[in-house]
Design a protein around this nucleic acid. Structure first.
Lengths: 337, 337
DNA sequence: GCGAAATTCTGCAACGATGTATGGCAGGAA
DNA sequence: TTCCTGCCATACATCGTTGCAGAATTTCGC
């Protein structure tokens, strides 16, 4: 049986509550008493029981993180950073993989998962704003990414549209005129895919290049889909001189397929991605991409969520935070002077 | 205020304890009573308070997973699979990143983290068997990987030595004679690095090829280290016709550096890795590597740990489980007939 | 139709912490 | 001297659940 506060109290010759007060930095404790208690704690090796504390206080000091799949490099890096940022502030992160299943997303909002956490970082992929609003309890929620842009919810994201436009402009500046886009999600306009596609179209417009739907390949954001999409384009005979993967794994999958088919990158087809995962820098050729300021995203979303939890942030108005981005020009779509 | 068991009991006209019994599938409950309770639960939208349950029962139905860094692709994939396997059995996984810091590893063993979990999946990188034994409480512990081989602890791992030998033999069969090894950990023999290096030496021995220490590059298992190690080898003028990265990111970093320097893969230098991360298949050229049967590792380690927790597994003797492996021959070190 | 056994349900006391209310004891003001 | 205020410590109730022991009811064998 573990050491409890009662044991400490007995050993120190004080009441249970005094031990509690010492632990919680209560102001009015005589230094001598405090020391006696602390000595007893050290001697007995007492550790506070977090479960009991949670039951009594209603706080768990855990944050929930809901994302589709932790094995996707972008999410893995993000989760790692979020966990470190949370840890610095005395919180842990409990991850839930939704696999883009609506049921899991719903359960994360209201089920046992919610109970275990003081607040939620949520990347909704399936359910919509009204569903969230309907199921949302009293605990704080911060949305990540931006499948949902809604004044009711806090949101931390990045300048998807701007970044995609900048990347597209870079490809155009390199002389590319027929830029295929891989990973579009036709049914969804507010999500990252939609916003990035918009950025692409905006850049085309500004350059006076017509938009050709034949260049847009819809698919889920997985490496093998990127490869398959490029295979489809090549087989269908659509001409293109660049590929914009709406995220890095798509671009890398696409690049792999191009190289297998004997298409040279970047000579024949330039390739660009989005996310700047660690792998992009070490691909061959290295991948031109957008670095989304992930550290900023992690830091600010954790800060915002914890501020909400601890009531430091004014209620009533949702925060919409947009992290900056940076173009990482590498071999797959180099600068052309 | 949330709905409690008391509210349900009142609504169903039974005692608090009967509600508890229904929830816990107690055997002797009249079907009619059970239904009344279940209806009341449904009507009130009651959800069990996990914190209270944990306090009372001493179980959290959470498993701890301690690894160095979730953003490493191998760990990300492993964590994802472990979480799914645990979820199927009604457990959650709480991840702790140690960053290979001994202090964090110690705290995971005995601190608050331990309290929050019913059992631990632990990849120790710094602390040794005796330290673990000294700090180990009563809760089950399963070691992952094999930096520690000790009869006191359960261990789930793979045939590191055999696999490395098979991979080396494959390189030798391809006519390679000077195989550089990247990512050795000179101070540690029982860890994955040591075992894989042993496998390499064994294969060399069997082929009658002398071992050359100049070909062994020690470094931590990070992509940029792989690149730097190859750069070092090239600069130092050591001759080699193959690179064996002790894991995939090392191999991929190495391959990147080779290609940048104009060394052709596999013509001039073959490259092989270890882990078969998703990325290996889509690298250019695709990476020859060892697939470690990760699904088996995930499934069996979760099973073992939960069996221990629930007392299904006989105490007293530690299980040492070795998952199988498979050679994935790809472009970077192809089959030579 | 009786006692024993099986079934069904209940009350009480924990699990280990914290919030509230309050009780002493100083010392300074009245 | 008396009263009040500020400091320090305490007792008790409480968070929502489950284990234990036992009460009440039914079933069953003979």
């Amino acid at each position: 049986m573990a050491v409890t506060m009662n044991d400490v109290a007995r050993a120190a010759g004080v009441s249970l509550k005094t031990v509690s007060n010492v632990l919680n930095d209560y102001e009015f404790i005589r230094p001598a008493t405090k020391k006696r208690v602390q000595d007893a704690i050290a001697e007995l090796g007492y550790e506070a029981n977090l479960t009991a504390r949670s039951l009594r206080s209603g706080k768990t000091r855990m944050l929930g993180l809901v994302l589709s799949d932790l094995s996707a490099p972008y999410y893995a890096e993000l989760a790692s950073r979020l966990m470190k940022a949370a840890s610095r502030r005395g919180y842990r992160v409990l991850v839930e993989q939704s696999d883009a299943a609506g049921e899991v997303e719903l359960n994360a909002l209201q089920g046992p998962f919610r109970q275990l956490t003081d607040g939620l970082l949520f990347t909704p992929l399936v359910i919509d704003a009204d569903t969230i609003a309907a199921r949302l309890g009293k605990k704080p929620l911060v949305l990540l990414g931006e499948h949902i842009l809604d004044p009711r919810f806090d949101l931390v994201t990045m300048k998807n549209g701007e970044a995609a436009a900048a990347l597209t402009a870079h490809l155009l500046a390199g002389g590319r005129r027929r830029i295929a886009v891989i990973g579009a999600h036709p049914d969804e306009s507010a999500g990252s895919a939609g916003l990035r596609l918009n950025g692409y179209r905006k850049a085309l417009d500004e350059a006076g290049i017509p938009f050709d739907p034949a260049l847009i390949a819809p698919c889920d954001w997985r490496r093998d889909n990127g490869a398959a999409a490029v295979a489809g384009l090549l087989d269908s005979g659509v001409e293109f001189d660049a590929v914009f993967g709406l995220n890095d794994v798509l671009a890398l999958g696409a690049m792999h397929e191009l190289l297998i088919r004997g298409v040279q990158v970047p000579r024949d087809v330039a390739v660009a991605g989005f996310d700047d995962i660690d792998e992009a820098r070490f691909a061959s050729p290295s991948l031109t991409t957008v670095s989304p300021g992930m550290e900023e995203i992690a830091e600010r979303s954790i800060s915002l969520l914890i501020d909400r939890i601890e009531g430091r942030e004014a209620e009533g108005q949702a925060a919409h935070i947009e992290a900056g981005f940076q173009l990482e020009v590498r071999e797959s779509a180099p600068q052309v002077s």
